[in-house]
Computed example of a mutant assay.
Amino acid sequence: MADQFMADGPGVSAMCADRADLPASTLTEASAVHAPGAPPAFQVFVDQQRIVLVGDVDALGSEQLARVLAASPVTGGTCALDLSGLEFADVAGCRAIAVWARGLAQRGVRLELWDAPALVRRTWQVLELDEWASVSFAPAA
Rank of each mutant, 00 (worst) to 15 (best):
R122F: 08
P36D: 05
E131H: 13
A140N: 06
F88A: 06
A14N: 08
S84H: 10
T28H: 12
R102W: 07
A32R: 12
I97C: 03
Q64H: 11
F42P: 00
G108T: 05
I97P: 00
A7P: 04
E128I: 00
M1I: 04
S25Q: 12
T123S: 13
S62Y: 04
F45I: 01
D47I: 00
A138P: 01
V135S: 12
W100P: 03
L83R: 08
T75C: 05
A89R: 04
Q49P: 02
L129Y: 15
A101G: 11
P73I: 00
E131C: 03
Q48K: 06
L127G: 07
G77W: 04
S25H: 10
E131A: 13
P39I: 01
P139G: 09
V74A: 08
R102Y: 07
Q125T: 11
G9A: 09
F5D: 05
A17P: 01
L129P: 06
P39F: 09
G9L: 13
A41F: 03
V12N: 02
L113C: 14
A20H: 13
A101T: 12
A70V: 02
D82P: 01
L69A: 08
S136C: 11
A7W: 11
V46W: 00
V135C: 13
R110W: 08
P139S: 12
F88N: 09
W114I: 03
P10S: 11
Q48L: 06
V91D: 11
G37P: 07
A32H: 15
G108W: 14
F137E: 09
A38H: 05
D58S: 13
V52W: 02
A14S: 12
L81F: 05
G77H: 05
G103D: 15
D56F: 00
V57W: 06
A24P: 02
L69V: 02
V74M: 08
D3R: 06
P10M: 08
R121I: 13
E87C: 10
G61Y: 05
V44A: 04
W114F: 11
G76N: 08
D90H: 12
E63Q: 13
A138L: 12
D130V: 03
V120E: 14
M1D: 01
G61K: 04
F42R: 02
I51A: 08
L27G: 14
A35F: 11
T28Q: 07
S13Q: 10
M15K: 10
V135R: 07
L69S: 08
S25F: 10
Q48E: 09
V33H: 05
D8W: 14
A41K: 05
G85I: 13
L60R: 06
A41Q: 07
G9H: 10
S136T: 15
A59D: 05
D130M: 04
D130I: 02
D18F: 07
A20Y: 02
G61P: 00
T26A: 15
A105E: 13
D21T: 03
A118L: 14
G77N: 10
A38N: 05
A14Y: 02
R121K: 15
V57P: 03
G37I: 10
L86W: 10
W100S: 03
